[in-house]
Design a binder for these strands. Structure first.
Length: 921
RNA sequence: GGGCGCAUAACUCAGCGGUAGAGUGCCACCUUCACACGGUGGAAGUCGCAGGUUCGAAUCCUGCUGCGCCCA
């Protein structure tokens, strides 16, 4: 793209975006090498929350990545050593399920038929073939990540680190194995963590069942929602304060259907208000019952196997599914006359997030992390301010959760993942935990050892990422250069849905492990520098236009790639940025995106306009200069008012953008740029530049100066915009330099400097004068519309102003008024104006001279409306000014402001009154 | 049950103690040689309800109503 004629009239993002996305990656523009010795540029480091390797890009990713990319590009352009590390997560359950499904679709082999090794080979094959899909999509978004550092959580470098972390925790006594109640997913046949369980409201039944006393002296009725588990009951609990049952505590009951004898115990957990007040205790199949069992030393009887079928060989219920068993048990109880009542009951059922099956609390051997010591440090890190949350509110949520944290079950009965480095001894039943495969049992020396089959929770490995990606543990005991240069990372940008899954775990694990790693200079590390990141920015959830959460089942998922194809990546990025205000979710609106596509088109057409004028200048032999550093220079002091004004406005906008980005206010930053570019640069500056640009040859100096300002301000605006809209700005920026015959100063606009407000000349006088002229122009335009002056017809105006400079401004800028408001001539009046075709502001009166009769009723209505408005305003102001308390207590500038406002309103009121009278005459 | 958040123009959202704002949409006019994905002008809100604090409340506090989320 070189000349205006070669540019398409409308911007077509698809024509350029893929080209630049590819260019950025191939040129390795965003690779961040380890700093050379003596290079002390400030680092800005972020980790991409690794998407699941099986994932497809969704709007949440796009928001997350758009925000991270804006920040990375901004920091990079601000001269920092910006590093954004990408990667993908092996996503244990999700990936294993996906490949199993694929196997099922292909033929008959199941995972189990294949065997562990062959299956994991299959998964690796799958990963190699399809695992890059999501990162391909990221490239399309223009994410300026360092691809040279891309990781996968099961890489050869990361896996040993995971093993090392596990072994160390074990050595420190923070890993234990034991039989505990876990959330068991009978479909996936693995334990899952508390976080992977969701609650669902369901209507079930509450069964009242009579348990007879063993001595035949009576009975007790228990209430339960899960009668089938009575096969595993080992007690009945009643509340110690419950007078109905107090006498029965200690007595034995005969458990129906099995004939086993079980005790009645007193325990606070039994709620006298609920059901009958007596509760059956099944320690092996309910977490609360498990706790009761521990308190009363009750045996735990597992009656369900890993597929949730009854596992009681010899019993008539053996082999029945848990729900079938329930029906059978209920039927049998009824037959024995022991079923007292059945009531409908609303209850919450635990459901597996991954498979959707009802979770079966199950007693099994699992590996746990003793979490409290880690949580304590993690709480301290945030309390002490070493980690800052934005919005701050999330710190509360974080403390709430961390304060009630439970030990973390980290073993998963899966094949895809980091296999736990523990070996079971067949002889002594001892466990050997080791970094490398041991030859013999460390306890008894037996060679009959086999490795633990469980793998680690995926979140365990991703929780280690902030330090493992930078080379922990150091291979030779020396801290890696990456670690020295980039840890701790500066910021984590993420959705709050993984606040506990990932964010909290990273904080816990990083604080724990990094505290042991000395600083680069050898001094001990404190918690302040052990943290994984210094700040966490939590963004909103992207919903559909109706505020509904996007989900596959609802079919309301918006595919970012689809939207990008329709509107362009830049427009979508800008939409997300402009809607990303903190605290509220984003209801993604296409209408908004359409608006920003129009914005991109506007930017494009300014380029066409500028190129056209550069061509004209070339033909006329006028120099075209692009000089970014000159924009602060005093050479502009003599420039026409609009040029001095636009520089000041650019300066102001730049400051706003920098400040907003610092505060993570993407919305404010985006709106400031939008408003400046369209509302000021295009609507005013460009139009006024047309007045100055004259290639006829008489006023070359003004033309040269204006064209230079136009090009240079536009170039600065492109840099300002480039973190938000990297594609279109890249395209135009290169073309702009080509057009003025200069080599691009960098390989990419992304490698140039982000503007600073001080780089543009401020001029308060120009801003005040220009504001006044704008008011005058808008007034005249309004009057002309009201009076029905045809668009093309120019009219003379009369201006009255008590303030002399205003009158001078109007007459000396007649050319501006002619262009912007079709004014054919300016006359200055010596007295206030009123009557037909007049409009008044606090600064001036203006009258449009036009012979056409005005629409009297319409004008009367408008004036009456204004009059009423001024009257109300005036009354309110006068009332307040009469209030002594206000005068006494309000700050002076407020009081003065109100007085000034009252005076102005009074003036306008009088003028409007006079105009109305004149009309009625 | 515990905790957190949100209610502002038709829609989507800013503002969070000093006279109500933006984008989209709507109405009218304009094919002016960058752009009709455009230009110009305009209409549109007792800031969920009720109290309180304050000279002054959309903004702070309390309660209520209605939504939403998180944890039990």
């Amino acid at each position: 793209m070189a000349g205006a004629n070669e540019l398409a009239k409308a911007y077509d993002p698809s024509a350029i975006e893929e080209k630049w996305a590819k260019y950025w990656v191939e040129q390795r523009l965003f690779d961040t090498p380890v700093p050379a010795a003596g290079d002390h540029a400030k680092a800005f480091t972020m980790l991409l929350p690794p998407p699941n390797v099986t994932g497809r890009l969704h709007m949440g990713h796009m928001l997350n990545q758009a925000e991270m990319d804006i920040l990375t590009r901004w920091h990079r352009m601000s001269g920092e050593r910006a590093l954004w590390v990408p990667g993908t997560d092996h996503a244990g359950i999700a990936t294993q399920m996906m490949v199993e499904k694929q196997l099922a679709a292909e033929g008959k082999t199941t995972r189990k038929e294949l065997g562990r090794e062959a299956f994991t080979d299959k998964v690796w094959t799958w990963k190699k073939q399809y695992g890059g899909a999501i990162t391909e999509q990221m490239r399309r978004l223009g994410a300026s990540v360092d691809w040279s550092r891309e990781y996968f959580t099961m890489d050869d470098t990361l896996s040993p680190a995971v093993i090392e972390a596990f072994v160390r925790l074990h050595e420190q006594g923070l890993v234990y194995r034991g039989a505990y109640i876990v959330n068991w997913d009978p479909k996936l046949q693995t334990a899952v963590s508390d976080l992977e369980v969701e609650s669902e409201e369901r209507i079930g039944k509450l069964y009242h069942v009579r348990y007879p006393l063993a001595d035949g002296s009576g009975s007790i009725v228990v209430a339960t929602t899960r009668p089938e588990t009575m096969l595993g009951d080992t007690a009945v609990a009643v509340n110690p304060t419950d007078e109905r049952y107090i006498a029965l505590v200690g007595k034995m009951l005969t458990l129906p259907l099995t004939g086993r004898e079980i005790p009645i115990v007193a325990d606070d957990w039994a709620n006298p208000e609920f059901g009958t007040g007596a509760v059956k205790v099944t320690p092996a199949h309910d977490p609360n019952d498990f706790a009761i069992g521990q308190r009363h030393s009750l045996p735990s009887l597992s009656i369900l196997d890993q597929t949730a079928k009854v596992d009681l060989p010899g019993s008539k219920y053996h082999g029945l599914d848990r729900f079938e068993a329930r029906e059978q048990v209920v039927a049998d109880l009824e037959a024995f006359g022991l079923l007292v009542a059945v009531k409908d009951h609303a209850m919450t059922v635990p459901v597996s997030q991954r498979s959707g099956s009802v979770i079966e609390p199950r007693l099994s051997d699992q590996w746990f992390i003793k979490i409290q010591p880690l949580a304590d440090k993690a709480i301290e890190a945030v309390k002490e301010g070493h980690i800052k949350f934005t919005p701050e509110m999330y710190a509360k949520t974080y403390f709430e959760w961390m304060g009630n944290i439970h030990d973390w079950c980290i073993s998963r009965q899966l094949w895809w993942g980091h296999r736990i480095p523990a070996w079971h001894c067949a002889d002594c039943k001892g466990i050997t935990v080791a970094r490398t495969t041991p030859a013999v049992c460390s306890k008894c020396g037996s060679a009959e050892i086999t490795q633990e089959t469980d793998v680690l929770d995926t979140w365990f490995s991703s929780g280690l990422l902030p330090f493992t990606v930078f080379g922990w543990p150091p291979p030779d005991g020396q801290m890696t250069k990456d670690m020295a240069a980039f840890y701790p990372t500066d910021l984590l940008v993420t959705g709050f849905d993984i606040l506990f899954f990932w964010v909290a775990r990273m904080i816990m694990l990083s604080c724990h492990f990094m505290l042991d790693v000395p600083m680069a200079d050898g001094t001990p590390r404190t918690l302040k520098d052990a943290v994984p990141f210094r700040e966490v920015y939590i963004h909103a959830l992207v919903r559909d236009a109706n505020r509904e959460k996007m989900s596959k089942t609802k079919g309301n998922v918006i595919d970012p790639i689809d939207i990008i194809k329709r509107f362009g990546t830049d427009a979508v990025r800008f939409t997300l940025a402009s809607m990303a205000s903190p605290g509220t979710d984003i209801a993604f609106s296409e209408a908004r995106t359409e608006g920003y596509r129009a914005f991109a088109n506007k930017i494009w057409n300014v380029a066409r306009f500028i190129f056209m004028n550069i061509d004209r200048a070339k033909e006329a032999g006028i120099a075209t200069k692009l000089c970014a550093p000159c924009l602060a220079s005093e050479i502009w002091a003599e420039a026409p008012i609009e040029t001095r004004w636009i520089l000041a406005r650019l300066s102001h906008t730049t400051n706003e953008v920098n400040q907003s980005l610092k505060d993570y206010r993407f919305d404010e930053a985006a709106n400031a740029i939008y408003q400046f570019f369209w509302g000021e640069f295009c609507d005013w500056y460009l139009e006024l530049a047309k007045v100055r640009l004259d290639f006829g040859g008489t006023s070359n100096a003004a033309t040269e100066l204006t064209l230079g300002a136009l090009i240079s301000v536009y170039e600065a605006a492109l840099r300002l915009l480039s973190p938000f809209m990297p594609f279109i700005t890249e395209e135009i920026w290169h073309a702009l330099y080509a057009a003025v015959g200069m080599p691009s100063p960098a390989k990419s606009i992304a490698l140039t400097r982000f503007p600073l407000g001080s780089e543009f000349r401020g001029d308060a006088v120009a801003v005040a004068d220009m504001t006044m002229l704008q008011e005058l122009i808008v007034s005249v335009r309004g009057l002309r519309k009201e009076m029905g002056v045809p668009e093309k017809e120019a009219t003379p105006i009369v201006v009255f102003a008590t303030d002399a400079p205003v009158a001078t401004l109007a007459s000396t800028n007649a050319d501006m008024l002619a262009k912007m408001a079709r004014v054919s001539g300016v006359t200055l009046a010596q007295t206030a104006l009123s009557g037909n075709g007049t409009r008044s502001t606090p600064g001036f009166d203006v009258q449009v001279l036009y012979e056409r009769v005005i629409d009297v009723p319409a004008e009367r209505e408008r004036l009456s409306k204004d009059l009423a408005k001024y009257e109300m305003g005036l009354q309110a102001a006068e009332k307040q000014l009469a209030n002594e308390a206000f005068i006494g207590k309000a700050p002076a500038h407020i009081v003065d402001g109100l007085k000034k406002q009252a005076t102005e309103t009074k003036l306008l009121f009088d003028k409007t009154r006079a105009a109305l009278d004149a009309l009625n005459r």
